[in-house]
């Protein structure tokens, strides 16, 4: 058991190392630099600016300097274009916002998607099935850059109590969380339906049914636990996707979250910021996978032996 854990942690560290290295060289291969601006910077000034961030050095020197700062000083570097801002500050400020929004919208997705999916499975091939799935699927059949502004105009402009955008009061969380939640509700509903149908056709459910147990009881007592596994397994990746992929929602609702940095850092050629974000994101993914694997090993005695 302990050997497996050590093995897994070792794999995680190697993964992160490869990730950091790849990112380091990829971002520097992009056309332009953090200093590419509409008004060209004079050569002598440019030289000085590069000296300050170390970007004047040859790539290997930059690379080892970065690794050293990362490992020895736990320093992710500076945001190049912003005067005196550290990469770690950006992550520390924006992650809690994205995390909060993610939790809320996953909650909404679960509350919409799971009942819709379960109901659709139980009433397979009926009008209920059709209506539940249709409702749940709006979130992926219309892009978020349509649903977001529609919600903002009709709910935000229409209701006095809701702001169209901003991030200052809890009321501001509703519209973005719904927009983001609807996307994932569609996934959850489809997965829950499929999973439930798989379970409902299993022999033990048939046996329970044959014994005359009431249908609701069968669904709740016996089918839900197994049938929701695919949907529940989706929550982890969906959550990771929300952290890095909520750029559109963040700009539509003016949210100081993390998704915008993943986009803006790339278009601004913010080398250190991209590297920091990727490392952070990679850490989340590797960590989540590690936990999932360990949980699986702990729960499954057969795997524990091997």
């Amino acid at each position: 058991m302990i050997r497996i854990i050590i093995n897994r942690i070792g794999q995680g560290i190697i993964t992160l190392f490869v990730l950091v290295t790849l990112t380091f060289f990829l971002v520097r291969a992009m056309p332009g630099s953090p200093y590419t601006e509409e008004k060209a910077i004079p050569a002598h000034t440019l030289q000085r600016m590069k000296e300050y961030t170390g970007l004047d050095q040859p790539l290997p020197v930059q690379y080892f300097r970065y690794l050293k700062n990362l490992i020895v000083h736990q320093d992710l570097g500076d945001v190049i274009k912003k005067d005196g801002v550290k990469v770690s500050e950006i992550i520390a400020e924006s992650f809690p916002v994205s995390f909060g929004l993610g939790v809320l919208s996953i909650g909404i997705a679960l509350m919409v998607g799971i009942p819709a999916g379960v109901l659709a499975a139980v009433r397979k091939n009926t009008a209920t099935d059709f209506i539940c799935l249709s409702a749940a699927m709006i979130g992926i059949c219309l892009p978020s850059f349509v649903i977001g502004p529609l919600l903002a105009v009709f709910a935000g402009l229409g209701l006095d109590s809701l702001n169209v955008a901003g991030w200052s009061s809890p009321g501001d969380w509703i519209l973005p969380a719904i927009t983001l939640g609807l996307i994932n509700a569609a996934y959850l509903a489809r997965l829950a339906r499929g999973g439930m149908l798989d379970v409902l056709s299993q022999d033990y459910i048939r046996t329970a049914r044959a014994k005359g147990a009431p249908p609701t009881r069968i669904v709740i007592r016996h089918a839900l636990r197994g049938g929701l596994i695919p949907a529940v397994a989706f929550i982890g990746p969906a959550f990771a996707g929300m952290i890095s992929g909520s750029f559109v929602i963040e700009t539509i609702f003016q949210i100081p979250g993390m998704g915008q940095h993943f986009v803006n850092a790339a278009t601004d050629r913010e080398f250190f910021l991209i590297q920091g974000l990727v490392l952070f994101y990679g850490f989340l993914i590797v960590g989540a996978n590690l936990l999932a694997d360990l949980a699986q090993i702990a729960l499954n005695p057969r795997l524990r032996k091997s």
Binding site: L19, L26, F262, V263, I274, L277, Y281
Partner: peptide, 11 residues
């Protein structure tokens, strides 16, 4: 995992 975490826009 690595491909998943690589910055999509950069690629």
């Amino acid at each position: 995992d690595i491909l998943f975490a690589l910055p999509f826009l950069v690629l």
